[in-house]
């Protein structure tokens, strides 16, 4: 029912386009983001996902189209009058203010209070209460990221906008922070609009993902839908490695090597610890095909093998 949808949708983009001097960054995008969701915008760099985020935040104005937040049209409001907040890619922490000063900044301007208790509560939630008086330059990368989060969620925004907030962290930390971020989102119940180019990040954290390419939406759906039933070749390729045989997609992990099936010649074996990646060329048709086999495999380059897969794993786009 349409009325039901309107009630559950907290943020809506209606046919939004954005033109810059030389190019169209966002082309006719319509999106509905449900209240309380962890919603990701996924796509390669330059696909327009950050521009969408910036139009919601108020740093850019759509060339055409409308942005609605909580059933209020916001696309012409300045940033300081929108009830959304951003976690910047660089975190944009004020270097002249302490951790506490950063977190208080928005409370003072947006809410007109400086409720010290709320500041400390939020700092406790991100485990930074002991570092309230430090300057951003004295914190580690992970701590800075948490200050940026605390600074935004203390304002209880309708939607929290996150612009690749994990990209500045080292890979080890990134995986851990994913879990923490997801937990935090569940705990505070704020809607997250999360921009990333990392498909693993999007798949592991999101309730819903919108895949973008060249300024346009490719597909919107749950992580499982997007991965298992991509609606375009672009989505299929972007979400992970994919073999294309006769126009049908098969993921390498679905390909198995067995006594019967299509013949292929092994062209490369790469040992990757938990599995071996086998590169092959089909004898018939000459297409390249990749498979993942147990790490103990003794396959060698030049060997001829047979490959097969389950038809349920086939992806038709």
């Amino acid at each position: 029912m349409p009325q039901q949808t309107a009630h559950d949708t907290i943020l809506e983009l209606r046919r939004v386009s954005k033109d810059f001097a030389t190019q169209r960054a966002v082309a006719d995008v319509s999106l509905e983001i449900p209240r309380g969701a962890f919603f990701s915008l996924l796509g390669p760099s330059g696909c327009g996902k950050t521009t969408i985020l910036r139009m919601v935040a108020g740093f850019e104005t759509p060339t055409t189209g409308e942005v609605w937040l909580n059933r209020q049209r916001i696309d012409s409001l300045p940033p300081y009058r929108r009830n959304v907040n951003t976690v910047f890619q660089s975190y944009a922490l004020f270097p002249h203010l302490s951790v506490q000063g950063n977190v208080e900044f928005g409370l003072r301007h947006k809410k007109g209070t400086d409720d010290i208790k709320r500041v400390l509560d939020v700092l406790k939630q991100v485990h930074l209460e002991a570092k309230a008086s430090r300057k951003p330059s004295e914190l580690s990368g992970g701590e800075r990221q948490r200050v940026a989060l605390a600074r935004a969620i203390v304002l209880e925004p309708d939607v929290l906008l996150l612009d690749e907030p994990l990209s500045a962290l080292d890979p080890q930390l990134r995986k851990q922070v994913r879990v923490e971020l997801r937990d935090l989102q569940r705990r505070v119940g704020v809607t997250f609009l999360f921009v990333t180019h990392d498909q693993e990040e999007a798949l592991s954290m999101s309730d819903q993902i919108a895949v973008m390419n060249g300024g346009a939406l490719e597909q919107v759906g749950t992580p499982r839908e997007i991965y298992a039933q991509p609606r375009s070749r672009f989505v299929a390729d972007f979400l992970g490695a994919m073999n294309w045989i006769d126009g049908i997609g098969v993921r390498p992990e679905a390909v198995s090597i067995c006594p019967e099936g299509r013949k292929a010649v092994v062209t490369g074996v790469t040992y990757l610890g938990s599995f071996c990646h086998i590169a092959m060329t089909l004898t018939e048709g000459g297409e390249l095909i990749a498979a993942q086999v147990p790490p103990g495999s003794t396959l060698q380059s030049g060997q001829t093998v047979c490959v097969t897969w389950n038809s349920v794993d086939e992806i038709h786009v």
Binding site: G58, P79, Y80, F88, A92, F105, G106, K110, L155
Partner: peptide
């Protein structure tokens, strides 16, 4: 860093507040 000025606006500061509380100190 322009994102510092955007952050100030994002956190509710009007242009004048941003000037006084962010641009001047920096």
């Amino acid at each position: 860093d322009p994102s510092l000025l955007e952050a100030a606006a994002d956190l509710g500061a009007r242009p004048r507040d941003t000037l006084v509380r962010v641009t001047f100190p920096l």
